[in-house]
Simulated assay, not measured.
Amino acid sequence: MDATARPAAPRADRALSRSAYAVPLSRTQLLAAAAVSVVGFALVYLVEVCTRAGQRQDVVVFARFQALPLGEHAGLIRDGVPIALGAVALVLGVRAVARRAARPVVAQALVVALAAVGSELLKATLPRPFHGTFAYVENTFPSSHMATTTALACAVLVLWGTARWRPEVAFVVVLLMLVAGIYNVTGFAHRPSDVVGGVLVATVLEGFTLAAFGLGARRLAPSPPT
């Protein structure tokens, strides 16, 4: 009896470990969120980047953001946020691997890499129509910096792996993303539309990747030990 019962415990531990990294959304909800982000990305590009009114509005907001405090430290702030998030994500990733939960680590590493590379490819591919010299004429949509920062923020949330302090961590992560977005604009690095576009690139990739890796809550719910 004991010999037949022992293998169930490691399987149960692995199931519990995997479920700790499941997001509170089903596969259908993850795919729907990704699809909504795709539509949002297209709308921001078509309205804010491709129309005269959108470009004008973008540069008006862009100019107003330069009056925010700590503007002289914008570069330090915008670079410091992803470095901090990346360091935390790395530590959490090592812990997840030690807990035999490599799948979410691979998924998040893939999202970060695709966000960084994909946003650069989009920036190089998408045209920016000339409707007058509103700020600078070259295309900077979407922001690869913000796409990568958002992907790292998502990695921290997904890899946290415990209910303890999770609401507080989510609050801090969202706050850091907001700060990074603001100072991407304040420091003349990106237009507001670039920042929004970068966030949407990351959420598209996050939704599709989590769904593809089976990291939705319903699929990874642990079965009772037998």
Results as ranks from 00 to 15, higher is better:
A15M: 11
Q55C: 08
S17W: 00
N184K: 09
A217S: 10
P167L: 11
V117L: 15
G75Y: 06
A5S: 14
A155R: 08
I182Q: 01
A32M: 13
A33H: 06
A221S: 11
G86P: 05
G207N: 05
A74G: 13
V185R: 03
V117T: 11
G118I: 06
R52W: 13
V158E: 03
S37R: 04
A189S: 09
A189C: 08
P7Q: 11
A212L: 14
A217W: 10
L121A: 06
A12V: 11
P24Q: 02
S193H: 04
L85S: 04
P167R: 12
G207Q: 07
L178Y: 02
L205G: 08
L220G: 10
A101R: 08
P222N: 09
V36P: 04
A98P: 02
E72H: 15
A217P: 01
H190L: 13
L200Q: 03
L76A: 13
L43R: 00
I83F: 07
V49I: 15
L76R: 07
L121Q: 05
R18C: 02
F134M: 03
T209D: 11
I77C: 08
Y21S: 02
P127W: 07
R14N: 09
Y136W: 04
G132N: 04
R6S: 14
A170H: 12
F65E: 01
H73A: 15
R27T: 12
C50W: 09
V173N: 03
S119P: 03
A8N: 12
L122P: 03
V169R: 12
P69M: 10
A98N: 12
F41G: 11
T125A: 13
S19L: 04
V172K: 06
L110D: 08
V172Q: 05
V59E: 08
P222D: 07
G75A: 13
V172G: 02
V61K: 01
V59I: 07
Q108N: 13
Y183A: 04
S193A: 15
A155G: 05
V23N: 01
A12R: 15
D58N: 13
L215P: 05
